[in-house]
Write a protein that binds this DNA or RNA. Structure first.
Ligand code: NAD
Ligand code: NAD
Lengths: 204, 204
DNA sequence: ATTAGGTTGAGAAAAATTTCACAATAAAGT
DNA sequence: ACTTTATTGTGAAATTTTTCTCAACCTAAT
């Protein structure tokens, strides 16, 4: 089983490999893939090595082989359904994004507390909170993206967890209190922007 | 100077502290702040200690003191102007987000290659790419958020860098080739969602 | 005043992650 | 066939990050 850090790299490799394949390449060196993904060549090799993926001593790695190994690791034989909670600006952006489909993820529904959002035109159906349980069950959803305002985040998370959700991608800038069996991945865009500013030497 | 990892924690502390202050607290223990931000108490203390921030041997840390120390570290005496390149769904969400203002960041303008976007109603003025140089200069912008499609990302980044941008928050799922003096912070939501799925035990 | 209790601060240890270094070896060239 | 060359695969070393541990010490209670 990959570590949380390693998984990020593996998924980046997959993206990079898909791009390289589309460009017509069949083979790739650890050095090349490293450059494509911002990882050192040694680490690329270590990562593959850790999953028993072999290259050719002088010919690098076979892209198709790498990709199918990665698909195996990430179990991409079936599509994973996802829901979005909070159909504001961010929720809308995520629900409209076409890129997820290439990665066997499917945003199947959105939820919002605001009745005005239910009538709006989105790419996906948007339901009131009452329907959460049935939709999650019907689509066999186990992961949700949380895009509600900070103050509503904990309540919305509790709601989701009550309906059996196992993982939450939390875009709200607050740490959710969740039971051990629920995994939360926090993405805080404001922190990322501030951090960039600090380190890009604008401030000091 | 903080490490990149450490900065993330420090900024989280700041958010947590602002919340705790709003709740009426004046003092905080490393343990409390740790719980609020998902960091161990020891690490909270180490972080503060590394910046010469002192607590009281038994009374914890003074929130106002912590906040002003953090403001000093992050130089929040003036507002930082930011631009968004690519006013699609994600660019729109970011440009409309009000939370940045509380953190002395100001999204001042957007850019888009698509003329149709220029007339649209946003919270900020949206310009064609030709105006990039003058806007960046006029607002003294040194950091940009990049929300263009993958295929356009490198070109847009080159454009920004040509106009003197020092830092890029890159939301496109591709590694940008940039000169050493430009810092890029990549946020790949797709990877974050896939990673969550993998580790939340949905797949194995 | 004295004591008890609880938290900080920091050195040491541990754990995690990354880089180094190079032998093994397959492919390509001669 | 032989040599050269480039790349993998992997232990060892280095570095970074986190946790452990506990003395120091402040605060509050008695
Ligand atoms: N937009 C950004 O650029 C940005 C940047 C950083 C962080 N964030 C965070 O992302 C989250 C979403 O941001 P946004 O800009 O989309 O906000 P938004 O206000 O546009 O959308 C929030 C949506 O959540 C809905 N909502 C409120 N309470 C709810 C509940 N209990 N259950 C279900 N839905 C509920 C609202 O009706 C609204 O539609 C916020 O927590 C914000 O802090 C956003
Ligand atoms: N929306 C999401 O949930 C999501 C998730 C993961 C990654 N991303 C990434 O974020 C980026 C933006 O996503 P989006 O959903 O907002 O896409 P979008 O298609 O809605 O918006 C892209 C915008 O960029 C503009 N553009 C194209 N080329 C440009 C150029 N050279 N200069 C300036 N503007 C240009 C387009 O006109 C459009 O308005 C993409 O790279 C996408 O892969 C988005």
């Amino acid at each position: 089983m990959a570590t949380f850090t390693q998984t990020k790299r593996l998924l980046r490799y997959r993206m990079g490999l898909m791009r390289l394949k589309k460009m017509g390449l069949e083979r790739v060196f650890s050095y090349t893939l490293g450059k494509e993904t911002g990882v050192s060549a040694e680490l690329v090799r270590k990562d593959f090595s850790a999953f028993g993926i072999k290259g050719h001593r002088r010919g690098g790695y076979d892209i198709d082989n790498l990709l199918s190994s990665l698909e195996r690791i990430f179990g991409k034989d079936r599509v994973q359904n996802v829901v979005v909670v909070g159909m504001g600006n961010m929720g809308k952006a995520i629900s409209m994004y076409q890129g997820f489909q290439d990665h066997n993820m499917n945003v199947v529904a959105g939820f919002d507390i605001d009745p005005a959002k239910l009538n709006k035109k989105f790419h996906i159906p948007v339901y009131p909170l009452e329907n959460m349980g049935e939709v999650i069950e019907a689509f066999n959803v186990s992961v949700a993206v949380l895009t509600v305002p900070e103050v509503a985040a904990q309540e919305a998370a509790d709601n989701l967890i009550g309906q059996g959700i196992q993982g939450i991608l939390n875009l709200a800038p607050v740490l959710l209190k969740t039971p051990d069996h629920v995994l939360v991945n926090n993405v805080n865009l404001m922190v990322e922007l501030e951090r960039l500013m600090y380190h890009s030497g604008v401030l000091k």
